[in-house]
């Protein structure tokens, strides 16, 4: 019983997250300025971190949590570097 319920739940989670990523990607393509694109990339990295943590639960591998942490750190540095570049620094 609980197996079936959680099997159904996985489809719901994946549906919401993929729909969200699709909307963000649409904004990435449409975005009139480059700032809009960076905003969508920033939101995408947060969604991807949550997705990696969900993967680690799906495959029952604790090591994927470390992947998610390293991904979060690298994404933060990426966004900061792009923002500095826009300001004319770097």
């Amino acid at each position: 019983m609980s197996q079936a319920v959680s099997g159904l739940m996985w489809y719901i989670y994946a549906g919401f997250i993929l729909l969200g990523l699709f909307l963000l990607f649409l904004r990435f393509i449409l975005g009139p300025t480059s700032s809009d694109r960076v905003v969508s990339v920033d939101a995408m990295t947060t969604v991807t971190t949550a997705l990696l943590v969900l993967f680690s639960l799906f495959f029952k591998r604790g090591i994927y949590m470390d992947v998610a942490l390293v991904y979060a750190v690298l994404a933060f540095i990426t966004v900061l570097a792009i923002a500095r570049y826009f300001e004319g620094g770097l």
Partner: peptide, 10 residues
């Protein structure tokens, strides 16, 4: 909430 945030960005 992740989905709503994406919708908001859009």
């Amino acid at each position: 909430f992740l989905f709503l945030g994406s919708l908001g960005v859009f």
